[in-house]
Design a binder for these strands. Structure first.
Length: 424
DNA sequence: AGGCAGCGCAC
DNA sequence: GTGCGC
DNA sequence: GCCT
């Protein structure tokens, strides 16, 4: 390829330097902007049916893969290194290489400029950060003229969850210091063991991945001794949330913790809807707590002990890592979720159905082992390229050769021989 | 041409 | 069932 | 947008 002539890549180096970034960081930033733009419905906001309209989700996904690949470049890649990822990295194709070439030659991406010069697109990317405003609502709100958070506050048709979240908008945007999350876990753990001494609290999410700061708090409760068939863990949320309000930790609920809305005074849900009945047995809680005088988002979930390993894996993330690990599981003939791991097969169009029992999972490492994936410490679970095929030692989604399901492992009888206590 | 993770909760 | 969050 |  060209670009190795005099001054090749100078425009790119200048653009990066102007922002105080390495060339790699600048390139990743540009593609991350594309991913964010498509998440915010970049090709859905305009009435004109442009080419590719309606593929926002897939493109967001695509550009996330591209960012993962680009993260593995050197600080100052030459053109040969950039071009090489087109053949070396799964998910990077011709259009992406063309965009890299555009960056190399001009230091800019026309598509990014297009988006940042479009006030409606800028508004969509701002407003989609609000809790409860997703791609669908943001497109409609912006179409109706909403441009700023202030505009949004004027609306009378916001969901209760969105209204609550907006009350603390500025505080919720602030990063949470690591220490605060450990403190909240301990407070929840103390309250939990008063309710039932079998309960233990574990902080997951980016905290467990070792980050010094987090965007929210993710705490998991495990009911020790609870096995398959037990439903006791479903009653925990309705009992503990009122206690956490009384303790002064919780200030607002974004989900209904149970059938006692009088305890969660500011609960977002109404009293008589079917969802409240359903919420009697909820395993997932989302709310707002206050630590060190600052309001923070808190997610709380409760699982029986036999689901500890898959739940821990799932809620430790990252989200991208989960998606690609699940895809790897599918390719191996399994379905993976926070509830467990079980053999499954494709049946008909777009339908995957279980073909065997949930396996007994002793630990996170056990899950990696069954799937023949290299164990990754929580701090190493970042993206697609961290999902490693342990039979080759290479990223699961990097080779072009097709992979086969694991014959020995999709054979359920043999599986149960290896793991005699498979769970139905 | 179909798939891109899989689930719980609000509505 | 759709929208949303994780 | 890319893979199968």
């Amino acid at each position: 390829g060209g670009g190795t002539g005099l001054g090749g890549g100078a425009a790119l180096e200048d653009a990066a330097a102007n922002q105080g970034l390495t060339v790699r960081a600048y390139i990743v930033d540009q593609f991350r902007k594309l991913s964010n733009a498509y998440r915010a419905g970049a090709d859905k906001g305009t009435g004109a049916r442009m080419h590719g309209s309606g593929r926002s989700d897939a493109r967001e996904y695509h550009y996330k893969q591209v960012c993962a690949a680009l993260e593995h470049l050197s600080d100052s890649p030459d053109w040969a290194e950039l071009e090489a990822i087109g053949t070396q990295r799964h998910g990077v194709g011709g259009k992406t290489i063309a965009k890299l070439r555009e960056l190399w030659d001009t230091g800019r991406l026309g598509r990014v400029d297009e988006f940042s010069n479009n006030p409606e697109q800028v508004a969509r990317e701002l407003l989609i950060k609000v809790h409860g405003i997703g791609q669908s609502r943001v497109v409609e709100l912006v179409r109706q003229g909403v441009r700023t958070i202030s505009d949004l506050r004027q609306r009378t048709d916001l969901s209760p969850q969105t209204s609550i979240w907006l009350k603390y908008h500025d505080q919720l945007e602030q990063p949470i210091p690591r220490d605060h999350i450990g403190e909240v876990r301990d407070r929840i753990g103390a309250v939990a063991s008063r309710i039932d001494p079998r309960l233990k609290a574990i902080a997951c999410g980016s905290y467990r991945r070792g980050k010094m700061e987090s965007r929210d708090m993710d705490v998991m409760l495990i009911l020790r001794g609870a096995g398959p068939g037990s439903t006791e863990h479903l009653e925990v949320m309705a009992r503990i949330v009122p206690e956490l309000h009384a303790d002064g930790l919780l200030t607002d609920d974004l989900t209904t913790p149970g059938k006692f809305p009088q305890f969660g005074k500011k609960t977002a849900a109404r009293v008589t809807t079917p969802s409240v009945v359903q919420a009697e047995n909820s395993i997932a809680y989302m709310g707002i707590c206050i630590v060190g005088g600052v309001h923070r988002r808190l997610d709380l979930r409760c699982y029986p002990e036999h689901q500890e390993a898959p739940a821990l894996l799932h809620f430790t993330g990252s989200g991208d890592f989960n998606r690609f690990m699940s895809r790897a599981a599918n390719a191996r003939g399994f379905t993976l979720s926070e509830l467990g791991l079980q053999p499954s097969v494709i049946k008909g169009p777009a339908e995957r159905v279980p073909s065997g029992p949930h396996l007994e999972l002793h630990s996170e490492a056990h899950i990696f082992e069954i799937l023949r994936l290299e164990y990754k410490d929580p701090s190493e679970r970042r993206d697609k390229i961290d999902v490693i095929d342990s039979t080759t030692g290479r990223p699961f989604f990097q080779t072009r050769e097709s992979r086969t399901a694991l014959p020995a492992l999709t054979d359920t009888s043999r599986l149960q021989a290896h793991h005699p206590a498979a769970i139905t």
